[in-house]
Design a protein around this nucleic acid. Sequence first.
DNA 1: GCAAGTATCATTGTATACAATAATGCACAT
DNA 2: ATGTGCATTATTGTATACAATGATACTTGC
Lengths: 233, 233
Amino acid sequence: MSDSKNDLAGKNESDEVSKEVTDKYSLRGRVFNRIREDILSGKYAENEELKEVSIGNELGVSRTPVREALRQLELEGLVNIIPNKGAYVHGISQKDIHDIYVIRSYLEGLAARWACERITDEEIEALEENVYISNFHIGKKHYETIVELDSAFHETIYKASGSKILEHQLSTYHHYVERIRKISLGREERAKKSNEEHAAILEAIKGRNGDLAEKLAHEHIISTIANLNKQGL
Amino acid sequence: MSDSKNDLAGKNESDEVSKEVTDKYSLRGRVFNRIREDILSGKYAENEELKEVSIGNELGVSRTPVREALRQLELEGLVNIIPNKGAYVHGISQKDIHDIYVIRSYLEGLAARWACERITDEEIEALEENVYISNFHIGKKHYETIVELDSAFHETIYKASGSKILEHQLSTYHHYVERIRKISLGREERAKKSNEEHAAILEAIKGRNGDLAEKLAHEHIISTIANLNKQGL
DNA sequence: GCAAGTATCATTGTATACAATAATGCACAT
DNA sequence: ATGTGCATTATTGTATACAATGATACTTGC
């Protein structure tokens, strides 16, 4: 075998490749993501019935993947299933979104605290790079990229927390409010401030200051909530 | 032969709306709960492969309900599914349990805070009754009942928080650690102290003192963690 | 003897068939 | 005209059949 230092060809021990729990490439995964998007984007009305055959026909698949997707969405709370009766949309309201942000404000704080104890040098480097590159893209108004970098920053901290449970939960919430985050980070002013807050959190983590890191990460989310309110969301 | 298959068909008790998202009376629901219990109780080894046909045969059902159950467990994080390959146990470790308690310490605090603002008179009465009755059963060492009452107390607060999201999440965590809670409350000393803490939380909520309620609910869980450590868990 | 390629098998992914349950509408009695 | 009961229909629940993919073992060429 080759001892080449180039990683790019070799298999890079990726036990957890996909961020998403549900894979994107199976029919079930696609149906799942599609319905979820349609619920989160408001395409389906609240309490609307989701019939397996209808959705199946619409997406060109059979009932089986649709059923599996609906059962998963039930567990996520986005769909309400009444046995032998049907599946009904149970979307997230404005209040739900607000609740998620408040919950996140606590859990992001906890994640930052734990990250202080367990973060690796590679992860710190990734965060530093993230903040630096984000600054560039904010200047260029590359909003798509900004959102992706924001996700990556938070996900890195989730992972650095060393808690599978916390990482899993925060990832889910993070995805839930993705639509909202896109709007929030669409304002250059907020994007800039957000990245400054990221930098401060990073410094606290680098300094292994758990109390401060928790406080800053907590305030980062509170600050986001305030911004959303300012935008009338 | 009147084993698994017939057990489920005979269940006729209803009337009560299930706390669990997943209904208990469909095959899928039964399979789901069964596998979950088996993972949480440690019957399956970590990373053990869960083959659809094997489990199906074992429970006397076809692959379909098993698949659906596995897909749901994947979303709960208890099973890791590699597309086209298989489903693998991803159980919760001692550390996971500890993490859950710490996470809960924050979220229970938040639930108590929110409950101060939104709790109804009926819910307050239910909590008062709960504390009173618990005291009785603690004296009688009715440990089964004590655990149920403990669950009911917390679930009532979750509901009183008025947050669908928070309620859903805390319920899930609460169930996750049910096995541990049974052990914890099995010591009379802890059961007694726990109920006193419940009483204090209730008083804070009745007084609509959000800061205090949050603090007490938070400390209630921290206190539980300390007790678990004392028991070597 | 060993490695590469291939055949075979095991297992999952998807579709469809059949069964059970709930919803709907119509006939009929009052 | 209306309410009840039955038949019909629509929809979900479960089982099975078939397709696709990955794992395994064997063969074959060297």
